[in-house]
């Protein structure tokens, strides 16, 4: 409640968006595409990258944190004040869907993320033979999530499919929950 009041007082409509997911999910590539930067020369993320996007009158600070195992224990350092959590899934990675579910549900237990809504970006859906929407929804046990408002959206960081729609959801959700004007 206090945080809502604090938010309402903010003049510049600023949001903190935390983007997480297993390594190779395509988090950085998604951000690059949104920023209209080159998506073909992205190296695996060593630490984290922060990008600020002005979107529909909002200032989105996107924290793109690397997904390698070594880095996952540092994820907690970024939880504070997160308004929206974007969880990126690689729709082609059949080997690790279970790992992906475990990591996600682990995150949702975190007290400091309780106030954040969850957008599940199912990336690489431009690749034929990727897992279906239902496979992922079930594999990630999304319907068991009761603690957070969530949605799932297939997207592609290469073609740009649904990236904008995803940000729309993030912003609209924030409008409903966080900003009183």
């Amino acid at each position: 409640m206090l945080s809502i009041l604090r938010k309402a007082q903010l003049k510049d409509k600023e949001m903190r968006v935390l983007m997480l997911g297993l390594d190779n999910a395509g988090k950085t590539t998604i951000v690059k595409h949104i920023m209209k930067e080159d998506v073909n020369t992205v190296s695996p993320t060593l630490g984290f990258i922060i990008k600020t996007i002005d979107y529909k009158g909002y200032k989105l600070n996107i924290w793109d944190v690397g997904g390698q195992k070594t880095l996952r224990s540092y994820w907690r350092n970024y939880f504070e004040k997160t308004d929206s959590l974007i969880w990126v899934v690689d729709a082609t990675d059949r080997f690790r869907l279970e790992d992906c579910a475990t990591e996600l549900h682990g995150l949702l237990q975190e007290e400091r993320l309780l106030g954040a809504s969850l957008l599940v970006f199912v990336n690489k859906t431009d690749v034929a033979g990727c897992m279906t929407h239902d496979e992922i929804r079930e594999g990630l046990k999304l319907d068991e999530i009761k603690t957070h408002k969530w949605t799932i959206l297939p997207c592609s960081a290469m073609t740009g499919k649904n990236l904008q729609e995803g940000l729309d959801w993030v912003v609209e959700d924030a409008q409903e929950r966080l900003f009183l004007y």
């Binding site: 073909n40 190296s43 060593l46 390698q68 070594t70």
Partner: peptide
């Protein structure tokens, strides 16, 4: 490889 390779463990 057209980007920086990484290794872990």
């Amino acid at each position: 490889c057209t980007s920086r390779p990484i290794i872990e463990d």
